[in-house]
């Protein structure tokens, strides 16, 4: 059997890994914004706190489902020295305990601590992808910012959806959501630009990213229009928060799912030089599936 020389889609991490990043990231971020909302009204601890914990649990369950040896899952804690997967796994129970403890005890201090751990959890997720050196779409430094800003935007989007039902936690909600959505869009553009540079990513990865762009622009446009409508017409507050929240959340989940499942092509294989054969000399190198710099620059 011959093997493809060009980069091919990775198959080791499937939709279950994507659920870990979508649900886990949004849940961890929601603990941050639950703590902020609860600073003014502690009732938020019991409104969105359990939802955040449930999402983190769902993400962990999805990871558990993709393990080859599920009943050894506890061994995941053995390498906190270098593995961001271990670090994420160690942060998860702390996050859940603090988040649920805050909800049960109605403790703002515990909620703030949970928010801090939630930020660390989100960072660990971003580093996990960044350290996967076999996937060009993940290992780029912009990936850190993309996962971080998207996670934060998803968490605040969830709070906005909650605000449509429970009432706004404060005047900061829509402006903050708008700011995070703009930040995510800016990071997405920077990320795409970085990977579209000559020799930065496989051709197919760039094609997938190009295909995602229209959907992401539409989601952000819809969310930002809803934010502006909510700010301009306070009477529309609940409806605008719901629309902005849904568009912001689904846009983020679309982004992460596609980054993990569709854009993640492997490195492929390359030769720095082709060999000298008798008679003859060595030739230039070849990197199938990657656009040569001069071709992209034309």
């Amino acid at each position: 059997m011959m093997r493809s020389v060009e980069p091919r889609p990775q198959t080791a991490w499937d939709w279950r890994a994507a659920v870990q990043f979508t649900c886990g990231g949004a849940g961890a971020s929601l603990t941050v914004f639950t703590a902020l909302a609860a600073w003014q009204d502690p009732a938020w601890l019991r409104r969105t706190g359990p939802i955040a914990a449930s999402l983190v649990c769902l993400g962990l369950l999805a990871v558990f489902a993709k393990l080859g040896r599920r009943w050894r899952a506890f061994l995941v804690i053995l390498n906190p020295f270098t593995s961001w997967l271990t670090r994420e796994a160690l942060l998860a129970p702390v996050l859940l305990a603090l988040g649920l403890g805050a909800a049960v005890l109605m403790s703002r201090a515990l909620a703030l601590a949970a928010g801090g751990v939630g930020l660390a959890f989100l960072y660990a997720q971003a580093r996990m992808l960044k350290e996967a050196r076999g996937i060009p779409a993940w290992r780029t430094p912009a990936m850190l910012w993309l996962i971080a800003t998207s996670g934060l935007a998803e968490g605040l989007s969830l709070l906005a959806i909650g605000a449509a039902y429970f009432g706004s936690p404060g005047g900061w909600l829509l402006p903050a959501l708008g700011g995070l959505l703009i930040a995510r869009l800016a990071v997405w553009r920077a990320y795409r630009r970085a990977l579209s540079a000559p020799g930065a990513a496989p051709v197919r990865t760039v094609a997938v990213l190009d295909g995602m762009n229209a959907v992401l622009l539409a989601a952000h446009a819809g969310a930002l229009a809803s934010v502006l409508a909510g700010l301009a017409f306070p009477g529309l507050g609940g409806l605008a928060a719901l629309a902005a929240g849904l568009a912001g959340l689904l846009g983020g989940w679309y982004l992460k799912f596609n980054l993990v499942v569709r854009a993640a092509y492997t490195q492929g294989f390359a030769l720095a030089r082709t060999p000298a054969r008798t008679p003859g000399y060595g030739g230039p190198g070849v990197k199938p599936g990657w656009t040569p710099p001069q071709e992209q620059e034309r």
């Binding site: 080791a12 890994a17 990871v63 040896r69 599920r70 997967l85 076999g134 490195q267």
Partner: peptide, 22 residues
Amino acid sequence: DLCIGCGYCIVACPYQARYKTT
């Protein structure tokens, strides 16, 4: 005996050298 089959090493390897069978 220690590996849990999380597949992280598979995506971390730039040489596509690792496998996991179910």
